[in-house]
Design a protein around this nucleic acid. Structure first.
Lengths: 230, 230
DNA sequence: AATTGACATCTGTGATCACAGCTACCTATA
DNA sequence: TATAGGTAGCTGTGATCACAGATGTCAATT
């Protein structure tokens, strides 16, 4: 039942191309890039200490995933979503992240649940310490721990792609939340606790419902902030 | 209500990079590339009459989408899915293509339904004329016409990504089907007719169910062929 | 004073070159 | 004859260069 004793972890080739991609992906997923922000290949290459070549392939990938947009001879921009595109992505996020939560409830191991619990507690600790940036990061890690437990690499990848488009669109709202509404955070903790509970009970439908309601709530919040400050 | 009279269609920049990507995507989606087939950048560049540069960016994108795999210093290969990966992709195809069919039922216009009907009839005509390759191509066009009617560019893109991984895995089974089981085709026509009917009636649940059953059937067929000839 | 034109400067795109890594073939050895 | 070792010929990766296109500035013109 256990694997036959993995003495060595498989070595994986690392390319500058891949590093550039991971760096940009992480910047997008953690909300460090604002919509409308303009980058250039040369600037990114300088920051990475490489030539333009690896960066342009990374950007090319991100552009294919609509996570970045290339302005012909003007630079690279983080796309600004109109409301139709945003709604499109929200709907799919709710479908797929709900689905992933349900699958996590079906397949999560004890170790998975332990990790979720740990991360969830770390979010809480960071929140209480008013380390909001840290709380956000832990929060992200928690959610991806859930999706990882779904045991579907393809689904995980799709969720990543959707989030790379969605997160920048939410970053303004997140800033508002951190500044004005730390109470909103507390609510999300209780959501997380309920989610873990459902997953631990292997109740797929409950997990899916909790996650979807959580996302709907957040979506409504983001939209209310956007309508307030256009 | 109508748009304000578009006199000129927006010009779109075309790059060799994009052309290479589209060419490879089309080859994958139409089943012209077998799993295990090995390509090289230089060969692809020669075929396109360009340098390696545009090709490698296109390949880089496809590799990021798991539609191609890069063997470090050995070439580029169309991935062979193990049964776990195949099951993963099938599950998601059934979810998302079912979802798209439901959305199509909600949003399809008269023009959409007309186009579906036309394409469906063309599949039938090609099938009767024993133009199996043409029938396959029309069949693909029909399905994407449905998904296009879902009015969700993001969902359409996700389906494309999944299909690029799935189609090569099915190509052997499709070959068997064309050779030995043309009757299977007839069945798919009736599925298509029922799907159009449900969409025309704006019955989202029915459309979703029909599409999902259709895919389950095809999945079972593909798996039976694979287990027969490993 | 307003408008038009040209130019300097920046961008991404594509081509070419250099290089390290992996295979597979082939030879020399036991 | 079987095996080990070396080498030649591929591969993708990365760097550098050349170029066309878009933009914003600034001056000349009306």
């Amino acid at each position: 039942m256990a694997s036959p004793a993995p003495v060595f972890s498989r070595v994986e080739r690392v390319t500058l191309n891949g590093l550039a991609y991971e760096g940009l992906k992480s910047a997008l997923l953690s909300g460090r890039l604002e919509p409308g922000a303009v980058l250039t290949l040369r600037q990114l290459a300088d920051e990475l200490g490489t030539s333009m070549m690896p960066v342009r392939e990374a950007v090319s990938r991100l552009a294919a995933e609509n996570a970045l947009a290339v302005l012909p001879n003007r630079g690279i921009v983080v796309p600004q979503l109109d409301s139709a595109a945003a709604a499109d992505i929200w709907d799919l996020r709710i479908t797929l992240e709900g689905d992933a939560s349900a699958r996590a409830a079906r397949h999560a191991t004890t170790a998975d649940i332990e990790q979720m619990t740990t991360l969830c507690r770390e979010v809480e600790v960071a929140g209480r310490a008013s380390d909001l940036h840290g709380a956000l990061e832990r929060n992200n890690a928690f959610q991806f721990a859930v999706y990882q437990a779904a045991r579907s690499p393809v689904l995980l990848r799709l969720i990543e792609v959707l989030r790379m488009q969605s997160v920048p669109h939410c970053s303004a709202a997140v800033r508002v939340m951190l500044a004005e509404r730390p109470a909103y955070f507390a609510q999300s903790w209780s959501n997380h606790a309920a989610l873990i509970e459902a997953i631990a009970a292997h109740d797929a439908e409950a997990a899916q419902g909790i996650k979807q309601r959580d996302l709907e709530q957040f979506r409504a919040f983001v939209e209310s902030v956007r309508s307030r400050q256009p």
